[in-house]
Computed example of a mutant assay.
Amino acid sequence: MASFKSEPFLWIHLSGIVAFPIFLVITWFGLSTSDRLPTLGLELLLMVVIGILPIFLMQWSRPFEIFSLLVLAMKPDKISYQQRQILSLFKMPKQRILSAATAVAMVGILYGLYQLPPLTMIELPILSQLLDQFHILGLFIACAAFVGANLFLQVPISVVGVLLSNEQEFVKITPYPTEKITQDFTLAGFQVDHIIAIDPVSPQK
């Protein structure tokens, strides 16, 4: 049996980390419409509640089920024995610690974004004037982008936690029960029997 660390889905979702800085830039772009001092506390709270909390709670209680790609997700009964062992790793206590630490780090990153100069201080007068007139829209953009930033950090960090697992211990791990996958994991996309060129391993009972 091949090493669980060669599982393509692990590396696909780990590579999602490249989207993290992109979403942070968009978040900063949206926050550039902020009044900063008068609304700093309220906006920070809003960003934490909308941008950080939902993704953190998902990873804490029902981790993202990684055997998916874009709008497709493998049906639970089509996930192989080894893949279900990997799912068991995502439910280990250390994964919750990683999720909590990542959420705390994101609060710090958010505060850091507020310390960056807004676009109104950069030589983009037309864009700055437009953003100043649409503060609520800018805040909406910032919140939406920050959700994306959290998702594309939390999921890769959880994958790192799995990849750091010991190979010898992995073979002893009980595969996650097929009937509990939908209940205990967050499945995104349309469920299909097979995702072409991504899952060459046939399911095992």
Rank of each mutant, 00 (worst) to 15 (best):
A2L: 11
S3L: 01
S3H: 03
F4P: 06
K5P: 02
E7Y: 08
L10D: 04
W11R: 15
I12D: 14
H13N: 05
S15A: 15
V18I: 04
V18Q: 06
F20A: 15
P21K: 11
I22Q: 10
I22V: 11
L24I: 02
L24S: 02
I26P: 04
I26W: 08
F29Y: 13
F29I: 02
L31E: 08
L31R: 00
S32M: 02
T33Q: 06
S34Y: 01
L42G: 07
L42V: 13
E43M: 02
L44T: 05
M47H: 05
M47K: 05
V49P: 13
I52D: 00
P54E: 03
P54I: 05
M58Y: 01
S61R: 14
S61Q: 12
S61Y: 10
R62D: 01
E65G: 10
F67Y: 09
L69N: 15
V71Y: 13
L72K: 15
A73M: 04
M74S: 01
M74G: 06
K75E: 06
K75H: 06
P76A: 07
P76D: 09
K78R: 15
I79F: 00
S80N: 14
Y81M: 14
L87S: 13
K91V: 00
K91F: 07
L98Q: 06
S99G: 06
S99W: 06
A100W: 03
A100F: 03
A101K: 15
T102M: 11
A105N: 01
A105F: 11
M106Q: 08
M106R: 07
V107Q: 07
G108F: 12
L110R: 01
L110M: 00
L110H: 01
Y111F: 13
Y111W: 13
Y111A: 08
Y111M: 09
L113E: 09
Q115T: 02
L116H: 04
L116N: 04
L119K: 05
L119N: 07
L119D: 09
M121A: 13
L124D: 06
P125N: 01
S128L: 04
S128M: 00
Q129F: 00
Q129H: 07
L130V: 09
L131E: 12
L131H: 13
D132E: 14
F134L: 13
H135T: 14
I136W: 14
G138F: 05
L139E: 04
F140H: 09
A142H: 11
C143Q: 15
A144T: 14
A144E: 13
A144N: 12
A145C: 04
V147Q: 00
G148P: 06
G148F: 11
A149T: 02
N150H: 05
Q154T: 08
L163E: 09
L164C: 12
S165G: 06
N166F: 01
E167R: 12
E167L: 03
Q168S: 09
E169N: 15
K172P: 00
K172G: 06
Y176H: 08
K180T: 04
I181V: 10
T182W: 11
L187I: 07
L187T: 08
A188Q: 04
F190T: 11
H194V: 01
I196W: 07
V201C: 12
P203T: 03
Q204I: 09
K205Q: 14
